[in-house]
C-alpha cells in the first residue's frame, strides 16, 4: 500500500532523485503528459496491442481447449506443447523471436515463400511491422496458458447436461451454444480481465526486442514509465504516467465486468 500511495504523492512533485529535492508542482506532471507526444504514442500503441491481441488470444485458447478436451488425435502431445511457451521465461521467448524475426530468420523466409514481402532490415526494424510482430508473438506465447483455464472449466461442465440436450435433439452446435458457452462465461470474464491487465503492462518483450523503436512504433505505456523513471530518473513524471495507466486499466476492467460479467460470472 505504501508504494502505491507514495507514487501518488510523487506524481505531484518535480523530483530530483540524486540531489533529493522535491518541488511541489501540483498537477503539472499530469497536464504535461497529455501534451507529450511520446506518452500519447505509448498509450496509442498499448491500446492497439490490447485490442489487437486479446480477442485472438481468447478465441485461440478456447479453440485449443475444445480440441484437447475432445481428445482429438495428438491432443496429449499438443497440450504440453501449447503450454510450454507460456511457462518459459518471457526474456528467453523474446530472444528466440528476435532471431526468428531477423532479416535471415525463419519467419522472414516463410513469409517470402508465401509471397509476402518482408522489410529489408527485418520485421522488428520496420515501423510498419514491428508492433504487429510482437503482437503475433504475444498471442502465440500466451494462449496456451488460457487454454488450460478453459480446459479446467470445460471439464467441470456436468456431462448430464449434454445428455439432456441430446435427448432434446440438440446437435453439436446447439450443445456448444446453449450448454458449453454459458458455462464458460465466468472463466471468459476472468481471462479477459487478467489478459487485459497483463497486456496493458507489456514491457519485457519491448525491452528485449525493440526498446520502443523504430520511430516509437513499439513504445508502450509501461516502457515509457520505465524510461522516464529509471533512465531519466524523473520519478514524479513517471509516477503520474503510471497513475494514468492505472486508471485506464481500472476503467477497462470495469467495462469488461459490466458488459461481459453478469450473475453467472459471480457464481
Amino acid at each position: 500500500m505504501f508504494p502505491l500511495l507514495y507514487s501518488l504523492y510523487l506524481s505531484f512533485f518535480a523530483v530530483d532523485i540524486l540531489s533529493g529535492t522535491f518541488k511541489f508542482i501540483g498537477i503539472a506532471n499530469y497536464v504535461n503528459l497529455f501534451s507529450d507526444g511520446d506518452f500519447l504514442t505509448a498509450l496509442k500503441n498499448t491500446t492497439i496491442f490490447v485490442v489487437g491481441t486479446i480477442p485472438f488470444t481468447t478465441i485461440l485458447a478456447l479453440i485449443a481447449a475444445l480440441a484437447v478436451n475432445a481428445r482429438l488425435p495428438g491432443a496429449s502431445f499438443f497440450k504440453p506443447a501449447l503450454v510450454m511457451p507460456s511457462i518459459t521465461s518471457m526474456v528467453v521467448m523474446a530472444l528466440i523471436f528476435t532471431h526468428l524475426y531477423s532479416p535471415n530468420g525463419y519467419v522472414g523466409a516463410l513469409l517470402n515463400l508465401c509471397g509476402i514481402p518482408v522489410p529489408e532490415n527485418g520485421l522488428l526494424l520496420s515501423e510498419k511491422t514491428a508492433l504487429t510482430s510482437i503482437m503475433v508473438m504475444d498471442i502465440l506465447i500466451a494462449f496456451g496458458y488460457y487454454m488450460l483455464l478453459y480446459l479446467a472449466a470445460l471439464q467441470n461442465i456436468p456431462r448430464n447436461l449434454y445428455e439432456a440436450a441430446e435427448l432434446d435433439g440438440a446437435g453439436a452446435w446447439e450443445k456448444f451454444r446453449y450448454v458449453t458457452l454459458p458455462h464458460l462465461k465466468p472463466i471468459t470474464l476472468f481471462i479477459l480481465v487478467i489478459n487485459t491487465i497483463r497486456s496493458f503492462q507489456i514491457f519485457v518483450e519491448i525491452f528485449v526486442m525493440t526498446k520502443g523503436g523504430p520511430l516509437n512504433s513499439t513504445l508502450t505505456a509501461v516502457y515509457f514509465v520505465y524510461d522516464v523513471g529509471f533512465v531519466k530518473f524523473d520519478m514524479g513524471y513517471a509516477s503520474a504516467a503510471a497513475y494514468i495507466l492505472f486508471i485506464i486499466i481500472a476503467l477497462f476492467s470495469a467495462l469488461q465486468m459490466k458488459y461481459f460479467g453478469g450473475r453467472e460470472a459471480r457464481t
Binding site: N121, L125, K211, G212, G213, P214, L215, V231
Partner: peptide, 10 residues
Amino acid sequence: AGFGANSFEK
C-alpha cells in the same frame, strides 16, 4: 551490406 548503420538504440 555496405555501411553498418545503427538502429535506434538509446
